[in-house]
Simulated scan of single mutants.
Amino acid sequence: MVGRILVGIDGSKSSWTAADYGIYFSKKLKRPVVGVHIVDIRLLETPFIEDLAGALGFTTYADITPKLKEILDERGKALLDEFAQRCREAGADCSIAQAFGIVANELVDMADPEDLIIVGKTGIHNKFAPLFLGSTSEAVARKSKCPVMITTDRFMEIKNVILAFDGREKSVHAAQYLNEIYKDIGIENLTVITVFEEKSEEKEKHIKELLESNLDIPYELEFLYGYPDEELEKFILDNRNKYQLVTMGAYGESRIKELILGSTTSFIIHKSPIPVLLVK
């Protein structure tokens, strides 16, 4: 059973789409949605503050920091008020929360294992991503102890879903998670995609047995052959107008193997034109 739905709100187009999905899931699952705004403390500590102070005419760096903090705090409150208004108009059960800190860390710390976090792929501070060492959405997905949905800039009602399934533990968890939400969300079609580098009847049989044991809802199974990242990306892109959600296990490889070979999860997060739901 899904607990709360936590939505990261930063004022970007992507975060307002995430808000729409949060309200959508709240009403479908009959669970509360929480709009969360984190004032990123790195905006108060990074070198560009000195340039900003000079441009605004502040004589010392210290003059601008408290004022900027106050401005960011007020901006966050205004964003959350707008989120709450959207919730009330949609008839969703919602609350709001605000904090200062590192965005990914604070958002993850607020969530319980049974919750669902929804964040936009591209945040308001995306242009500072190189300075901040990676995207917030990916950091949340890596650190979270609960499922994370990463949205694009366009809301779509979820009817047709892809499950990327490789037979490992986290992909099994993704299948089981769909069992829980399938009926309430109103999913009409589920397509399971498994990619092998080469054809293997033994491996295909193993995948079929795992799905029969762990997926309790109707589905179609399709095997693809080649490099998993490339084949999965191609399938999603070719069918972007048919499906509204990709579900997969989050970061199934060891960190060492990911460092050497890369991560399918990270690749799909960045490449998918439709939202991605990651299950631990």
Rank of each mutant, 00 (worst) to 15 (best):
T65G: 04
A84V: 11
K69E: 11
C87Q: 01
I96Q: 05
K77F: 13
R75Q: 14
K69M: 11
D73A: 14
G91Q: 08
S95P: 05
C87N: 09
T65Y: 06
K67P: 11
E89L: 07
I49H: 00
K69Q: 10
Q98C: 04
K67Q: 15
Q98F: 00
E82M: 09
G57D: 12
D81T: 11
K67N: 06
D93Q: 08
G54W: 13
P66N: 07
P66K: 01
L56I: 06
P66S: 12
L79P: 08
T60G: 10
R75E: 15
L72E: 04
A97Y: 14
E50I: 05
F58T: 02
A97D: 12
F48A: 00
I96M: 02
A84C: 09
D81C: 05
P66M: 08
L80S: 06
F58S: 01
Q85Y: 11
A55P: 08
G54C: 07
K69V: 02
D51M: 12
E82K: 08
F83T: 01
F58N: 02
D93W: 01
D93C: 01
K67G: 08
F58D: 01
A78Y: 11
P66Q: 04
L72W: 11
G76F: 02
L72F: 14
D51N: 12
D81S: 12
C87T: 08
E50K: 07
A53Q: 10
E89P: 02
A53T: 09
A97T: 07
G54R: 13
F48C: 00
R88H: 13
I64P: 00
A55C: 08
L52D: 06
A55N: 12
A90Q: 05
D73F: 15
L56V: 07
T60V: 10
I71W: 06
D73L: 15
A90L: 00
F58Q: 02
A53H: 08
L79W: 13
G54T: 10
A90V: 02
R75S: 14
R88T: 13
A92M: 04
I71P: 04
A92I: 00
S95W: 08
T65M: 14
A78L: 15
Y61N: 09
L56P: 06
D93A: 01
R88Q: 14
E50F: 07
